[in-house]
Amino acid sequence: MIEVEALTKRYGSTTAVDGLTFTARPGTVTGFLGPNGAGKSTTMRVVVGLERPTSGSTKVAGQRYADLPAPLHAVGVMLDARSVHPGRTAYKHLLAMAQTHGIGKARVREVIAQTGLESVATRRAGTFSLGMGQRLGIAGALLGDPATLILDEPVNGLDPDGVLWIRRLVRDLAAEGRTVLLSSHLMHELALCADRVVIIGRGRLLADATVHEIVARSERAGAVRVRTTDPEPLARELIATGAQVAPQEGGVLQVRGASVDDVGTVARRCGVTVLELSAESGTLEEAYLQLTGDAVEYRAAGTQGGAR
């Protein structure tokens, strides 16, 4: 269980996190989503006690992180890959972590096997690819068999095989009743493994809902797409029935306020040939982009002038 309550974190005049409140519950995978620079990593660093909140509070397992008697057993933490000394082998890195909590070598070997690092365990972490570094970070998070896991961008840099592995791993961990909070700036990653999604932009909460609820918020959700040889009479007729119509390229109309059945009936009535007719469903990606559209900190140069 992770509770973030009215968390604000400022660095000088910059506000990284602004009054953020959310809860990650046991048995669920909570996706923590936001554009780069939205405050995800800052929030996570505050939750694990590396930084102090300017105001507000965070709790893990009902306690302040700094008050946990055995942090490694309570919370598995994987922050960015640069949390490992590059000159140390994977095995020694994990062993030193384990020794702080009196965890034996057998458990170290176990997490090495579990994360598929056996063949590289005696290599120095500095020689690792991004993907192997992520696996090492996850191995460290699993070491204490914690009830809560905090993973910052775990999918970043993994090969497709590794991505599948992470999805299965976090699902299994949640199924065992653990709390999993994992951040990403890629919506579709979370769509496939998160139960709930907390979306932030510029440090503020934009949405805290299930994946389904967020998809339903997409502008496209509930609309009907119809392609016809003769869009104009159909559009007039549809508007007459009270629907809203947005004409698009290639003879396509996007219709709201009418079902697929309604649109088909109207099309037959005004005698146009229907080439394509379907109910549109929004994607999580679209919902996310719409939510964060105003909150993107950095834009590609080409779109800078057109920032909404």
Binding site: L72, H73, H101, E110, A113, D145, G162, E176
Partner: peptide, 20 residues
């Protein structure tokens, strides 16, 4: 790479000594 998931048995073994 071989992929295994957490086994409840080992979880309990580690839980035996949960001091900080």
């Amino acid at each position: 790479m071989s992929v295994t998931s957490t086994t409840p048995g080992t979880a309990r073994a580690a839980a035996a000594t949960r001091s900080g």
